[in-house]
Amino acid sequence: MFGSGLLKGLGVTIKHIAETYIDDGKDSPSRYENSIDLGNGRKIIRQSMDQEGLLTIQYPEERRLLPERFRYIPMLIWDTEKNEDRCTACGICAKVCPPQCIWIVRDSDDAGKPITRPAEFYIDISVCMSCSFCAEFCPFDAIKMNHDFELAVYDRYPNLIYDKAELTVPVEYYATLWPVQYEQEETVRHQKEEEDKRKAEEKARKAAEKKAAAEADKSADKPKRSSEEIQALKERAAAAAKAKQSDGADAKKARLEELKRKAAERAKQRRENDE
């Protein structure tokens, strides 16, 4: 029938409008019931799969809940506990990078002997294809994918060539963005460290038996320090596990508090160091 297409089309649109209101009704009293407040009037909203009406996310005020695995641009992890880069300049990320946008200069001591630490680390993000191979293959969990996508700049060069300072983030930042994976990695690391420690102890004991008392002192020193470290790790793992258990905004808050505290401490330390 002539005009039936038009009526049908209008019908679909009207239905859509109605559904939008129904969806809104379900979210009563507020659209932001389930959202995470980021401050500054910005919120992360969750959209459920069965939302039939309008799906608009009003970025920048509202943000999508980015999944943990979201990947944008790589970041380098700064181990706040050990106070060093996790990166050992092994170059695996530079080798697997498909567009070859990672450039690493390995550090060397005064004698020119290479040390496992990057002196410079560049990523040309005007080439990076966000494939996350670097994060996948890094054996030291030193490079991960950042969730930060607000990177637009007015000038390309050199702003889009990120150097080490720009790429580095503290490990807590990573832990907030990638909680599940972080935890898995921590467990693996933990196991490995225990193993290493056990081996080291064994070795130390053997060495101690063989060698003189003065040397034994030294070996006693080492495990002591690492057991402290293990303690700290355990504590943190436990906290993380707890945080994970109670899923939702509370957990996130707790994590944030923790993160905040750590960051503040670190800032203080940095200032002290600077002075």
Binding site: Y72, S126, F149, A152, L160
Partner: peptide
């Protein structure tokens, strides 16, 4: 310049 491959819609809006 909006980097990213591809920039997500949010990144573009930014």
């Amino acid at each position: 310049y909006v980097p990213g491959c591809p920039p997500t819609p949010e990144a573009l809006i930014y």
